[in-house]
Amino acid sequence: MVTVIDTLARKPSELRHPEKANRPDSPVLRKPDWLRVKAPGSGQYNATRAIVREKGLHTVCEEAACPNIGECWSQKHATLMIMGDTCTRACAFCNVKTGLPQPLDPEEPSKVGLAVAQMGLNHVVITSVDRDDLKDGGAEHFAEVVRQIRAQAPGTTIEILTPDFLRKDGAAEVVIDSGPDVFNHNLETVPRLYLKIRPGARYYHSLRLLERVKERAPAQFTKSGIMVGLGETKEEVMQVMDDMRSAGVDFITIGQYLQPTRKHAAIDRFVTPDEFSAYAAIARAKGFLMVSSSPLTRSSHHAGDDFARLKAAREARQGR
């Protein structure tokens, strides 16, 4: 029988091959069988894609080359990416293009609200690129998207996956006050790897952002996620779990990092399904209301079903 300690006590290959991480034009490792997914192509997938194209919207599903796009779009679920398709940062893990973005489209919030209504979504996830070029980081635009969804699709629950609004005073509060059901901001990796993997961000600023959500709107669910397979140790992952719990995070996601291109940070190793199960057991023991930990876990994968379970878990805990 494999135990939690057995599966997590493996020495990361970063200690053996430190030169491999973030190397230019590094080889893309062959995926193991547990990471292989079917190519998209169902009728509902095509219908979802048609609505996205018709409204001129962007999705993180496409921009970030998510492996779950076929499954999600076939179930009428898409994570919409607002404020354009060009990010002002250049994180080493991300496939979204970097550069000088176009001005915001003032009609985008209403377009998103209408698209959500037309798709008949029960739950929608809204994310964005980083917009460090804007005075408020795009906070008011983000909040208006939430308000438009509420107006045009009142039965839809809303999950947002936000940037960190670094050095934008008052920006996070504007988004929090728009009243999403779930406020998600990903820590992405362990603190030691930030300068290499997420150089434009600061770990403790992101952690403080999640804490502020709970302080300002205690009823909002908070969610955060990390990628593994970048060279982190099990002790570092468990410390991130503790940091999240200290900030009041309700829901943690843990997924395998997949290298988009040879120009991106190299995969240190493929974490096995048993190890993901071990991380899930530890996270539950630490008190998270919800845990999603698997090779193909992504922030918005199964978000609608997870939201229903998240509410049930809170109700069960409050009823004790």
Results as ranks from 00 to 15, higher is better:
Cys87Gly: 10
Pro103Val: 03
Cys87Thr: 08
Leu100Asp: 12
Ala90Ser: 15
Arg150Phe: 00
Leu114Cys: 00
Lys97His: 15
Ile82Asn: 07
Met83Asp: 01
Thr156Asp: 04
Met119Asn: 09
Asp132Pro: 02
Leu114Thr: 15
Asp105Tyr: 01
Glu144Gly: 01
Asp105Ala: 01
Gly84Gln: 02
Lys111Phe: 02
Glu144Pro: 08
Ala117Lys: 15
Leu121Ala: 15
Pro109Gln: 10
Cys91Tyr: 03
Glu108Pro: 07
Pro103Trp: 04
Ile82Gly: 02
Val112Gln: 08
Phe142Arg: 06
Ile158Phe: 08
Met81Gly: 08
Val112Cys: 08
Gly138His: 01
Met119Gln: 10
Val112Glu: 10
Val146Phe: 04
Thr88Glu: 08
Ala117Cys: 12
His141Thr: 02
Val116Ala: 02
Asp130Gly: 10
Val125Gln: 11
Ile160Thr: 15
Leu134Asn: 05
Val129Glu: 12
Ile149Gln: 01
Val146Glu: 02
Pro103Ser: 06
Val112Met: 03
Thr88Met: 12
Gly138Met: 07
Ala151Gly: 01
Gln148Ala: 14
Glu140Thr: 15
Leu134Val: 10
Ala90His: 15
Cys91Lys: 04
Ile82Ser: 07
Ala115Thr: 05
Thr88Asp: 12
Pro106Met: 03
Leu121Tyr: 09
Val116Ile: 14
Asn122His: 14
Thr86Ile: 15
Asp105Cys: 04
Gly84Tyr: 04
Arg131Pro: 11
Thr86Asp: 00
Val129Lys: 09
Ser128Val: 00
Leu104Val: 06
Asp136Ser: 06
His123Asn: 14
Pro101Lys: 08
Asp132Leu: 03
Glu107Cys: 00
Arg89Ile: 05
Ala117Leu: 11
Glu159Thr: 09
Lys135Gly: 01
Leu121Trp: 13
Arg131Thr: 12
Asp85Met: 05
Cys94Thr: 14
Ser110Thr: 09
Pro106Val: 11
Val116Thr: 07
Glu108Trp: 03
Asp136His: 13
Pro109Gly: 03
Leu121Pro: 00
Cys94Asn: 14
Asp132Gly: 01
Lys135Pro: 03
Val125Asn: 14
Lys135Asn: 12
Leu104Gln: 03
Ser110Gly: 03
Asp85Gln: 10
Val124Trp: 10
Met81Cys: 12
Arg131His: 14
Ala139Val: 11
His123Ile: 05
Asp136Ile: 11
Leu114Asn: 14
Asp136Lys: 12
Asp105Phe: 01
Ser128Arg: 06
Asn95Trp: 02
Val124Pro: 14
Asn95Arg: 12
Arg150Cys: 00
Thr127Pro: 04
Gly84Lys: 06
Gly120Phe: 13
Gly120Ser: 15
Met119Ile: 08
Asp132Trp: 06
Thr156Ile: 01
Ala139Gln: 09
Lys111Ile: 00
Glu144Leu: 02
Pro106Gly: 06
His141Glu: 04
Arg147Gln: 12
Glu159Ala: 11
Lys135His: 11
Ala92Arg: 13
Arg147Ser: 14
Pro103Asp: 00
Phe93Glu: 12
Leu114Trp: 12
Arg150Glu: 11
Thr157Asp: 09
Gly84Pro: 08
Cys87Ile: 10
Met119Ser: 07
Arg150Leu: 00
Gly138Gln: 03
Met81Glu: 08
Gly138Ile: 08
Arg150Ala: 11
Leu134Tyr: 02
Asp136Leu: 12
Ser128Gln: 00
Gln148His: 11
Val124Met: 07
Thr86Trp: 07
Cys87Gln: 04
Gln152Glu: 10
